[in-house]
Design a protein around this nucleic acid. Structure first.
Lengths: 269, 269
DNA sequence: CTTTGCAGG
DNA sequence: CCTGTAAAG
């Protein structure tokens, strides 16, 4: 027995679900699908997208700004409980977290904040290395980690989604050029150091070791994807109690339709 | 000897000039082309669009809002003088009028104001028949007429462009349904009554009489164009001194690429 | 570069 | 419905 889970930042579910690439969903044989950046309320989608037969669908949508952020989880397994967003109002409203409690583990689907644009000084010139939303991003990660740790007291944890951080130099094509760009800032990388030190295992690295050139996001600019100038910022982490049960972890970089590709995890269970 | 002039509301010159339909321009054998709703500054266009070889180009662009309104005139004949906008500052800034003085006549290319959306009452409900910009539209027409009459003292006048008014019931497919819609309001139609009473001749009607079903604009909604549910709101008027010289006037309703089609005039001269 | 939102027509 | 804009990624 095994359970297969996949995660995909779709960059607009209305757009993706109108493309031929959306057959990815119909052809998918996994048990749980976490989507990020849905940028839509379910009622804005065709019924077969919002409520596909054979799946239970859950949504967390942005209420602070429409067409922004948003996550969804489709599951063939009925969860014991479902929670939208983090517990504190401070971190609610952008539709970033769905928490499904399954029999054997807590499952989190997260669209973690982007660091945003560089801050501008009084003269309107960008301040190198200072990004508008990095403080919010770091606070969000801390709040998430505290909640995950709390949940982990009852059973193991699986976290997937777009972390908007490449952990190590090996996780992006151009590490040196990006040391002062959000997504690879020292303080962002340090969060993933702390997170993994708590016992959250990067399942792709666990399975594939230090393989190079495997990414999950490519800028739409400069034909980055055809040159594989990418970043690995989409992850499946499991709390280390589940490490013995990791059967496989992968990156579906043959799937197009978004600037991200799906990533997956299979657990023996 | 004759001179041929055409007028086209392109609904975005950047968009049209990227479509195959823009071959209309390259294949055009006329002497003067007036465009409306260019929605662009010439420097935003490819050089062969902004400054086509063999033509003199003139532009009046909106300075109050970018990507809005805007007119252009391409001429194979060098004008004696060129004036942008109406003389009074009150009616300037939206890029609506180009006035080229030729040897035998004053030529005006106009994008006359749209009546806008219905005004809302205190409860946010639309007030039937009350449109936000109809007062501005009527003021603009009066200012234009005064200017044209002033110019007409020195030589005859040719006026083309999008008037955003259907003159008579015969000039739109659904007159009854539109009696309370801007474009066919009594006060708008009354302006064209006054304008023609001053001696400005609707050249299409002069040539074709009361022919029905010939329109120059179709809503993009409801497949109006394939059903020919249109309006004739694009005109060539000439002051009656030129009436003996009208050789032809036409509507190029086989030209696609905009919600309007071109209209044309040939004068013996 | 791409997806959203929105104004304007 | 289509063209522009802007914000966000």
């Amino acid at each position: 027995m095994s359970i297969r889970l996949v995660s995909w930042n779709v960059n607009g579910l209305r757009a993706v679900s109108a493309k031929p690439e959306w057959r990815w969903f119909a052809e998918n044989t996994c048990d749980v699908i976490g989507l990020q950046e849905t940028k839509a309320m379910p009622e804005q989608l065709r019924p077969e997208v919002a409520s596909p037969a054979g799946w239970e669908a859950h949504w967390a949508s942005s209420v602070v700004k429409k067409g922004y952020s948003g996550v969804a989880v489709f599951s063939r397994i009925k969860p014991l409980a479902v929670h939208c967003e983090l517990p504190q109002p401070e971190w609610q409203g952008e539709g970033r977290i769905l928490h499904l409690e399954f029999e054997k583990f807590h499952f989190f689907n997260g669209y973690f904040p982007n660091g945003g644009a560089e801050e501008l000084d009084e003269n309107g010139k960008p301040i190198p290395g200072r990004f508008k939303r990095v403080p919010y991003k770091m606070g969000f990660f801390d709040a998430f980690t505290a909640y995950a740790e709390e949940c982990r007291k009852s059973k193991p944890v699986v976290v997937c989604g777009d972390f908007n951080i490449a952990h190590r130099a090996i996780d992006l094509a151009r590490p040196r050029q990006n040391e002062k760009n959000t997504g690879f800032l020292p303080e962002e990388r340090a969060f993933l150091d702390r997170f993994t030190a708590l016992g959250y295992v990067d399942t792709f690295r666990h399975v594939h070791g230090d393989v190079e050139g495997r990414y999950s996001w490519w800028s739409y600019k400069m034909r980055a994807r055809e040159k594989n100038v990418g970043w690995r910022i989409d992850y499946f982490f499991v709390s280390e109690e589940l490490k013995p049960y990791i059967r496989d972890a992968w990156i579906e970089d043959d799937v197009y339709g978004s600037d991200h590709c799906p990533v997956g995890l299979e657990l023996d269970i």
